[in-house]
């Protein structure tokens, strides 16, 4: 049986800068990395592999350069990597993305039964947290988001028991397999690749599934299949740091000013 991790390659947003005069993004030299949330999803899939002897497959949709991220996943311990890449997949929003990923998982399932799909909570470039639920809905899998602990996967009874972290609450949920589990970062501490695995991953074959393989309706994928369109992009206003009052001679006044600011910014409620 398979455990499938969905990962995305994203620009390292912490290295993105906005040109203060033109308001455009300066992306020069900004590297692409595996979405930090997805590293935890991959790690959890590898732990399920170690715990239950599942075969770990990692799937990613993106341009051909996504191969780098998939090789990293192989270096960390995934058994197989599938790259979903086609011009027709480009420009997709979460709706169109979840279709391609869901169809890829369906194809994997035809070959070998899928028990669990693990996704990261969200991506750092899009921040939507929508792809995981999209996949679950399309495939009719149990949907468990915000999972911070997988207690047990019972392959025989076809059940999974996991803990979800919702606001200030924790709830333990039992759901039938197959399940889509979207994990939070606190769920695990990712492993580090060993050198022999890195070397192995460098030479490994990565399956490329383009739309000739996938045969999806072109009107439902990529830009055409996207329900949302980005209309305009602009740079946000940035608050500059300010020193409030004179805290040395008049701490009360400084405190009043700060509390005022926090109330104004909707950070503090009375």
């Amino acid at each position: 049986m398979l455990v499938v991790a969905c990962v995305k390659q994203v620009p390292d947003t912490t290295q993105v800068e906005v040109d203060p005069t033109t308001g455009t993004l300066k992306r020069e030299g900004v590297p692409f990395i595996m979405n930090p949330f997805d590293i935890h999803a991959l790690e959890e899939s590898l732990r399920l592999k170690d715990r239950y002897g599942l075969r770990a497959v990692v799937v990613s949709m993106g341009p051909p350069s996504t191969e780098v991220t998939l090789r990293k996943a192989l270096a960390l311990g995934a058994d197989e990597a599938v790259l979903l890449s086609d011009r027709a997949f480009g420009g997709a929003d979460t709706l169109a993305t979840s279709l391609v990923l869901a169809e890829a998982i369906r194809r994997l399932d035809e070959r070998e039964e899928v028990a669990v799909v693990v996704c990261g909570r969200q991506t750092i470039d899009g921040d939507t947290a929508q792809v995981g639920p999209g996949i679950a809905t399309r495939l009719g899998y149990s949907q468990l988001t915000l999972v911070d602990r997988i207690d047990e996967v019972d392959l025989r009874a076809r059940k999974v028991r996991a803990r979800r972290k919702v606001g200030g609450w924790h709830e333990t949920v039992e759901a039938p397999l197959p399940a889509m589990i979207a994990v939070v970062r606190e769920i695990n501490r990712p492993r580090y690749p060993t050198v022999p695995r890195r070397l192995m991953a460098e030479e490994a074959t990565i399956a490329l599934w383009n739309n000739e393989v996938m045969k999806l309706d072109e009107n439902k994928i990529g830009l055409k299949g996207s329900a949302t369109q980005v209309r305009r992009i602009f740079s946000p206003e940035r608050a500059k740091g300010e020193i409030l009052g004179d805290g040395l001679s008049n701490p009360e006044e400084a405190a009043h000013l700060l509390i005022g600011k926090l109330i104004e910014k909707d950070i503090l409620y009375l």
């Binding site: 501490r189 990712p190 492993r191 580090y192 690749p193 060993t194 050198v195 022999p196």
Partner: peptide, 12 residues
Amino acid sequence: VEMHAKFPEELL
């Protein structure tokens, strides 16, 4: 580090 990826947690 290279054969077993074992090292103090902080180093990750």
